[in-house]
Write a protein that binds this DNA or RNA. Structure first.
Lengths: 198, 198
DNA sequence: AATATTTTGAGAGCTACTCTCATTTGGTAG
DNA sequence: CTACCAAATGAGAGTAGCTCTCAAAATATT
């Protein structure tokens, strides 16, 4: 049986989406109000009006409520849509600008909170870095398509690693402030493109 | 310089050092035999013949038994001792070669086990990556000294980030095999020095 | 309306980690 | 050798993240 692609599916799906959003919203609010460590999963569950066991059906860990990055899929989509005449690095910079420009103000505010939280809670940094690790694969894939080489090519992966490293450094330098991060990243990419002269 | 002999301390100090080493040795052995997750702190404590509470007096977390990197201080020392005529990247490569060449075979074997363990246990990757994050500061410091700029200089930190990123990518590519990693790193640094052409 | 499937809540259980307090052990001075 | 102090240890209780099981409730299907 072929089901219609996307859109508002059955009642079940919509309810699940709502529950998921509610958990995340309450979690982030509580983290902001009382701090990450001081907030227990039970408290989040109570605020979202679900049982603690249900919490773990929606998020594998407490961290995951913070770390799910809504921007990532948008980035991938935007990156693939960049015109072919742009250089690899040019495409990257354009992608970044596009995604952030198109983001509505409330989403932007959420992103601000999220990044600040991650930056200030040491417990959250490690798992965030793990996501950066996955970013290498993503970027290697993008680069591979653009320059017509394999995603497992050593130089392609090396390039992707450097980009991720540069983003990481910018994140630390920006102190969890996404506005500063955005500006730093453009400079960082320019510096990278120039061959990182010191 | 504190390259002090540091030999005959009091009995207390020596006993502590022995206890610490025993805990770590048994921990790594058990991890190898039964897997990281399947080994409990209580089991490690029992094997090392200490109480569970004492375990946490020696290591802040279970992870720490794996993640303590004996190479880091050696790297820093070797890096600072590199002759001034070498380029920044040249000094980095020389440092790497030196430290690994001087490492005795048994330490090398331990390092192999350690890296393989970290690579294969997802739970250990995040904290390892966190160490990589700290590596940015270390490298920025080194670079700053060598090129006579500030360690907070944007370009210096950007360079350090790229180096860490490249190391990270190499680690993933090497699959936790330090022999491969060592070779890949030299290529990776050469590619970086050339400006990461694709 | 009856039935099949999915989602949920309740609760028990495991383990990493923290804290407190009494006991032991190593170092030192009379 | 004895007495004393400080550091290290062990025992135990407690917290919280996370897993698992099972029965009840909600939703989809016929």
């Amino acid at each position: 049986m072929t089901s219609s692609p996307a859109e508002p599916q059955g009642l079940r799906e919509r309810k699940k989406a709502r529950t998921r959003a509610a958990i995340q919203r309450h979690a982030l609010r509580l983290f902001r109000e009382r701090g990450y460590a001081a907030t227990t999963v039970d408290q989040i569950a109570a605020a979202a009006e679900i049982s603690p066991s249900t919490f773990f059906r929606y998020f594998p860990t407490k961290e995951a409520t913070v770390l799910y990055d809504a921007l990532d899929p948008l980035m991938v989509e935007a990156a693939l849509a960049q015109p072919a005449e742009l250089s690899l690095m040019g495409a990257l910079r354009a992608t970044l600008r596009e995604v952030y420009e198109r983001m509505p103000e409330d989403a932007w505010q959420d992103e601000r909170d999220r990044q600040l939280l991650v930056f200030n809670e040491p417990e959250l940094r490690a798992p965030m870095l793990e996501q950066y690790g996955d970013g290498i694969d993503l970027l290697a894939d993008l680069a591979a398509r653009r320059v017509g080489r394999s995603a497992t090519d050593f130089e392609v992966r090396n390039w992707a690693g450097a980009v991720v490293g540069v983003v990481l450094a910018a994140f630390y330098t920006a102190g969890g402030d996404p506005d500063r991060l955005l500006h730093s990243l453009d400079d960082a990419f320019a510096h990278l493109e120039a061959g990182l002269p010191l």
